[in-house]
Design a protein around this nucleic acid. Structure first.
Lengths: 152, 152
DNA sequence: CGCCAAAATTTGCACTTGCAAATAATTTTA
DNA sequence: TAAAATTATTTGCAAGTGCAAATTTTGGCG
């Protein structure tokens, strides 16, 4: 092989992430949510209620797709929408039900983590978490468009 | 907030992974491949030609979806299929073109990594890679079905 | 007020996806 | 060798997705 992917972080990170997703998906389905809804749930859980556009930024979900997704989640009583202080914006937030669902699923994710890190020391775990946080911090959230990227 | 997601690896990993994907997607599109195709390309690049079923396992892509995806990729001359030694199986492998496309994209992923790890020391980078590999090793590749999971 | 900008939503459309069931090609087993 | 199992493919279908364009609601400005 000409290049060794095993050293590239984007590859390493997504490889692990995909495995986690494959594991958590059946649990999500039992709760009647799909992967995209789950990403919205944890984004709101973590960051609190946000305008739709801001939510699109943190989740990297297309705005019109997100709008429809939120509509479905609203139908499931997982989230609710209301006008923001700047009434052009619409704020999306978790309902008590949405919060409850999230809090039922998170522990399962925690179990997955425990299984996966069976042979990790506490120090290794702490280091990994710290480095992943640092890595995330090194990536801005706005999408980089073609022109900007080529200009950089 | 009742639970702090910032300590959960599945969350931390996917959060970073999603950012990488959002960044790499425009590059993929310029090469005429989508995210799923990219996942197949790197899986084949990394592991070499494989039976369709094995490819489904490593990529966590649904078998019928994968079959159709491979068909489209075949149309783009990115991959080819042939009967395996056990002729029930079909082996999928990269074409020279598929390999070339992959090798054009990988360096861009490397750039993303470089940007994201601007303030990482070499030691931190090495540690992160090592721990991600170890984490991956702690997760088996077969999908866990509902019965098995509940029984465990 | 009249316009333009900003934030979301909606719509139309082509395409992808996952699931379940049917089919095909081969191998393994009884 | 006939029946059962394995590996893939195909099909039908309902649903989700991304993109571009049109629309709605509201805010800011001259």
């Amino acid at each position: 092989m000409a290049m060794e992917l095993g050293t590239y972080l984007p590859y390493l990170v997504n490889r692990v992430g995909q495995r986690f997703i494959a594991r958590i998906t059946p649990v999500l389905n039992e709760e009647g949510v799909d992967v995209q809804m789950w990403r919205v749930l944890i984004a709101l859980y973590q960051h609190g209620a946000r305008p739709v556009g801001a939510l699109a930024d943190v989740t990297s979900i297309n705005l019109s797709t997100l709008s429809r997704l939120i509509g479905r989640m609203e139908g499931k009583k997982l989230v609710e929408r209301w006008r923001g202080e700047d009434a052009r914006s619409v704020i999306v937030g978790l309902t008590p039900e949405g919060r409850a669902v999230t809090e039922r699923i998170v522990p399962v994710a925690a179990e997955l983590e425990t299984e996966a890190t069976d042979d990790f020391s506490e120090a290794e775990l702490a280091t990994l978490r710290q480095l992943l946080n640092k890595l995330y911090g090194g990536m801005s959230e706005e999408t980089v468009d073609k022109e900007t990227r080529l200009a950089g």
